[in-house]
Each structure stands twice: as C-alpha cells, then as structure tokens.
Nucleic acid binder design. Structure first.
Lengths: 216, 216
DNA sequence: CTCTTTCGCTACAGGTCGTAGCGTAACTCG
DNA sequence: CGAGTTACGCTACGACCTGTAGCGAAAGAG
C-alpha cells in the first residue's frame, strides 16, 4: 500500500521471474527523503537518489516514471504517522490534528516537496490522481473520523437523512478540510510562521464558532 | 514597481551608459506568462522565454538570477487586478474578494507557477522575500482594507487600544489572511474543485460566524 | 533446467543551465 | 562632438540532468 507502482496493479502475484527487492524500494524512498532534506526539491536529481540508495539509475526508472511520482511516494509514507487520538472534546481533537499536521509540514522534506508536486500536478493528471490517493485521502480520513466522533458526543448534529442531506454533509466536510489543511499550509509555507499551540487554539476557536453558525 | 530588479535599487537615475529597455521588460514578462500557459512551470525554460520575447538569453540573466525570480515578477503583476469594491456589507465584501482571488488562481499561469515558487522559496530566502513583497503583501492589503471598512460600519469591534491590543489585532489579521488565502488555494490546487459563488458564500458564512465567536 | 524478470553497469543523444567573449547600440557627461 | 559607460545580440562552451538502450549476471517460478 505504501509504494503503489505505476506499471503493475498486482504486487508479484505468482508472476514468473525475479521479484523486485523490497529493501531496494525502501532504500530508494529513504534516500529520496534524505536528499530532499539536503538539496531540496529543486536540487534533487534521479542520479543522486540512485547514488545515495546504492542502486543503479535504471532501477529507479523501472519503478517511477519521473521525479514527481517518486517524491510523492517518498513523502506519502510520512502521512501514515497522522492519527487522531480521542482527547474528549471536539476542540481538543481539532487542535491536536492541526498541531500534528503542522509538525509534519514543518519538516524540510515535506515542506519543499509537497507544494512542488502539487504545482506539477496542475499539468499532469496522473500525478494529481497519485497525490490524491496517496496523500490527500489519508488526511481527509481524519476529518471524517473527527466529525463522526463529535456527532456521537452530540457536539455536532447528526447527518441529515435523504440524498440532499448527504450531499450537503459531503460539501461541508470538503469545506472544512480545505479550511484546515489550507490554513496550516499557508501559514507555514507562505507566511513562514510556526504552527504552535497558541495559533492552533486561536484557529480552532475560529473554526468551531464558524461551524456552530453554519447550521442555520 | 512592477519589475523590481535584483541588482539596482535605483531605476536609472542619471546613470551613465545605455538604459535598459522597458519594452524588453514587458516583452519578457508577457512571454513568461504565455509560456507558463503552454508548457507549465516544469516545462518552462529560460531559452524558450527568450525566444518568445525575441530577446537574447543573456538579457534575461542580466535581470533575473533564475527562473523562479523571473516567474515571481511575471505573475505578480496579475495581482494588481485584485480590488475590493464596497458592496455594502462585510459578507458581500469577503465573498467578492474570495471570488476574485479564485478567478485569479484558476488561470493556468498562476495555478502552475504560484505553488512552484513557494516550494522553491523553502530553500531560498531571497526568493521568499521577493514573493512576500511582490505578491503576499498585495493580498494582505485587501484583508486590512476590508477589516477597517467593516469597523467603520460597526460590523466589527474597533481596534483595542494599547500595545497588546494592537498585537492581538495583528495576529487576528494574519490568521484571517491564512484562512482565506489558504482555503482558496487548497480547494483550487489540491482538491481541484472550483471556487464558485456557492462555495464562496458557504465559506464566508463559516468565516464570519467564526469571527463573531472569536471576540469573547 | 528453462523461462522470465530484475538488476547493475556503461554508453548515449538531447536538452538545459549559466557564463564568457566579442562587436555593436544607446545614453551621459565634459 | 568625443570619451566613457552600460545594454544588447550573438556565438560558443563546459557542466549537468534526463530518459533510454544494450549487455551479462542474478534470482525466482514452473
């Protein structure tokens, strides 16, 4: 699930021939992240990644079509660290996920890579889809989980029945997702200021007051 | 003001020698935007820009140190179009600026270029500063203007006196700016969905309710 | 053992970067 | 007007990166 290659949907299901080395996969992805820290997205080259991983350059191209797809997979595994511990109330839950997301985006690998691949994805549909499935969906899961938790606690109204109620709920989740992820990314990468507990609290307060007012 | 070069703070104040051609400046920036539309950030090269502008490649390097700085200046002029017409109430004002910002970011030049230069700026402080002064400050002006207008209308409480009240106001403006710009960018570039009137209204409603709850 | 696929290695054509050198054009100052 | 200074176009260049091809050897499946 971590490294979804572009040529074979099936892993190595009884396929003849020499199987791909999983250690090589990990070595390449590790080397990619390390190189991102040192030289950033702009200075990253396939040749250097191969050298760091102790692997031939051709081996990289057998698995990833280009730099962007490689970096998406290399960074995507970091998003597995994201979790949503139950802190008892919605405010604390959101503050926690905002801080986690902030810490993740403050790392030099993600900082320099995420915006770059998103920029590249504006002219590459396959890349956009890869980003969506490998990164965006993992984040969105947290929003959905936090929402259903808050509904069970009674902090948020339950989903309205009917098809149009379901559609409205989907829209609202999308909106909240864009607001949370967008604000954190913008503060860290554009405003270049830290996402600390004070900011997380102020932001969460704003968001929750907004959600309360969105109902009617 | 449009093209702030990196070597000379003074324009050409009685300096000896042949002055730089302003037509060449415009031709290069126009060619840069046109090339961005056609080939995107990843496919953009200094050579192609020079060819499109009918200019030698060396002329580009005399004015901009690299691709990123050139693109920042080329895209920055588009942000001059942003205005804040007085629509009578805060909700309408915000909706208007959100829609304007959305239209601007929906253009292929800005879409592919903005995230790329921001990504590059994570490992280039000079570029980050250039982005801040050429692009970010122009957007932030709108937030400040809309805020003071709403205060005059009585829709928002006036600035608290004293040094700590001023600091709090500054923090709040920064928060609102990150929320607005971040949400629009994230929806357009990551979620890849349009910023239309319906979304702008829902988002603005959320934000205003949040602001109302932020006071106490 | 045979077939199939991976892997490391070398080599390569094509493209881009950023710079240097040169002659010419344009402008300022005395 | 003439001398000094800067911009410009052009050519050429070394360094680097891309992505592919071809080869022999290694490693698994049947």
């Amino acid at each position: 699930m971590v490294a979804r290659m572009h040529q074979s949907a099936h892993p190595s299901k009884g396929r003849p021939g020499r199987p791909r080395s999983v250690e090589t996969d990990h070595a390449i992805l590790d080397a990619t992240r390390a190189a991102l820290v040192d030289v950033g997205w702009g200075g990253l080259t396939m040749g250097e990644v191969a050298a760091r991983a102790g692997v031939a350059k051709t081996t990289l191209y057998r698995r990833w079509a280009n730099k962007s797809e490689l970096v998406v997979d290399a960074v995507a595994v970091l998003f597995d660290e994201l979790e949503l511990p139950d802190r008892g109330c919605l405010q604390s839950d959101i503050e926690g996920v905002v801080l986690q997301f902030g810490r993740l985006l403050a790392r030099p690998e993600t900082k320099t890579a995420l915006m770059a691949v998103v920029a590249e994805s504006t002219t590459d549909d396959a890349l956009r889809e890869r980003i969506r499935s490998a990164i965006v969906e993992r984040q969105k899961r947290l929003v959905l989980l936090g929402r259903s938790r808050a509904q069970q606690r009674g902090e948020l109204p339950p989903d309205a029945g009917g098809p149009e109620g379901e559609r409205a709920a989907e829209h609202t989740v999308g909106l909240i997702f864009d607001v949370i992820a967008g604000a954190v990314v913008h503060r860290l990468l554009v405003s270049a200021e830290p996402v600390d507990t004070g900011w997380a609290r102020q932001f969460t307060t704003l968001l929750l007051a907004g959600l309360a007012g969105l109902g009617h």
